[in-house]
Design a protein around this nucleic acid. Structure first.
Ligand SMILES: [Zn+2]
Ligand SMILES: [Zn+2]
Ligand SMILES: [Zn+2]
Ligand SMILES: [Zn+2]
Lengths: 165, 165
DNA sequence: AATCAAATTGTAATAAGGTAACAAATTGCA
DNA sequence: TGCAATTTGTTACCTTATTACAATTTGATT
C-alpha cells in the first residue's frame, strides 16, 4: 500500500526545492501577520534547517552562519533558532540530561516518563498503548520505530491538589 | 476514583524507606544472577537515585559521590550511572540537542519526531492518537500532561529498503 | 533630514554536560 | 603467591548552552 505524501513527510521522495521555497514563503507570510521580522540571520538559519530535512545541532548551524558572514559566537545561532521555535517555524528536539532509578527493574521495558514540573519527581507509566500508537503513526510514513523516548512534563496529583487550593 | 498504587508510581504516597530498601534488595539479587558486581560506588549511586524519586543530572550525582568519599571526576559518576542503566536499574532521560525546521508551520502542533538512524532525516508524524494514549496512561496515575516530547529513532522507508537488499 | 528608543546583532567570558586515554588499585582465581 | 581482568582515579579535552554587555540597525517621530 502506498501512502499519500504529505507536507510533514521528509522521507517521501518529493521536489525538495519546491518544498523549501514553499516553506520559506509560508514563513514570511506568517511572520508578516505576526508583526515579526525575518531578518537576514533568521532567514539564513531557516534556510539552513530546510536544506537538510534533518535535525542539526546549534553549533553546526553556527558554522554555516559563520560561512555566510554572520557572527561566530554561539548566541548568534541560539538566538535565531529560538526565534524560529517561538514562531512555530522550527522545533527543538528535547533534552533532559538526567538519570532516574528504575522503578520496575526486571521488566525489560521502555517506559514513558512523567516528570512533575513543581516537585521534580519522576514516575514511569505503562507504555504499551503509547508505543503501539506511535508505531502505527510511524508506519503510515513507512517508518520503523526501533527506540523511542517519551517524556511528559506536567503536574503530579499532589502538586495539582496544592495548586487548586 | 482511586488508583491502585504500584511500584512505578513515585507520585502515590508510600513508605519510601521500604520502597528504597526493596529496590536495593532487588538490585542486588538481579546483579548476583547476572554475575555483575554492585560495588560501593555503584551501590551509592543507586542509593542516591533512589533517595530522591526524581531525575538527577550526572554532575549532581557526582557531587554526592564526592561527599561520600569517591572521586570528584565526571567519569566516576558517568561510569556508575551507565552500569546501572545497562543492567536495567536506572534510566537515562534522553537527549538529542538538535533543531529541525517545522514541516507543518501554523498548525500549532506538538508533533512526534521520526529520526532515521541511517540518513538522519527527520519527519513529523501525526501525534493526536499518541498523545491521547499518553494522557490516558498518565491519567491513571493522576498526572496531568502539559507538554510531551516524543522522539523515535529507527529506519525510514528508503534506508529500510536499502538494508533489505 | 536629524533624533531617538527599541530591536537586533556581535563578542567575550563562562557554565554545564560528556568522553577519551591512561595510571593505580582492587578482585578473583590458577 | 602470581597474574589477568575488572574497577576506580585522574588528566585533559570536547560539545552544548547561557549571561552580560557593546555596537549596530531599524522604524517611527519630530
Ligand atoms: Zn522537502
Ligand atoms: Zn509534583
Ligand atoms: Zn519510593
Ligand atoms: Zn533514512
Amino acid at each position: 500500500m502506498q501512502h499519500e505524501p504529505d507536507q510533514g513527510d521528509a522521507f517521501a521522495p518529493h521536489d525538495h526545492a519546491l518544498c523549501q521555497s514553499r516553506a520559506l514563503a509560508e514563513a514570511e507570510e506568517r511572520l508578516r501577520q505576526q508583526g515579526a521580522r525575518l531578518t537576514p540571520v533568521r532567514r539564513r538559519t531557516l534556510e539552513i534547517l530546510l536544506e537538510a530535512h534533518r535535525a542539526m545541532g546549534a553549533y553546526e548551524v553556527l558554522d554555516r552562519l559563520a560561512e555566510a558572514g554572520f557572527g561566530r559566537q554561539p548566541p548568534v545561532a541560539y538566538r535565531a533558532l529560538e526565534f524560529l521555535v517561538e514562531h512555530g517555524l522550527a522545533h527543538r528536539l528535547q533534552r533532559l540530561n538526567a538519570f532516574a532509578a528504575c522503578l520496575h527493574p526486571g521488566e525489560d521495558h521502555a517506559p514513558v516518563f512523567l516528570i512533575c514540573r513543581v516537585c521534580d519527581k519522576v514516575a514511569e507509566a505503562h507504555a504499551a498503548n503509547v508505543r503501539s500508537e506511535l508505531s502505527s503513526a510511524a508506519g503510515e510514513l513507512g517508518f520503523t520505530v526501533e527506540r523511542a523516548t517519551v517524556e511528559a512534563l506536567g503536574l503530579c496529583p499532589a502538586c495539582a491538589g496544592r495548586d487548586a487550593e
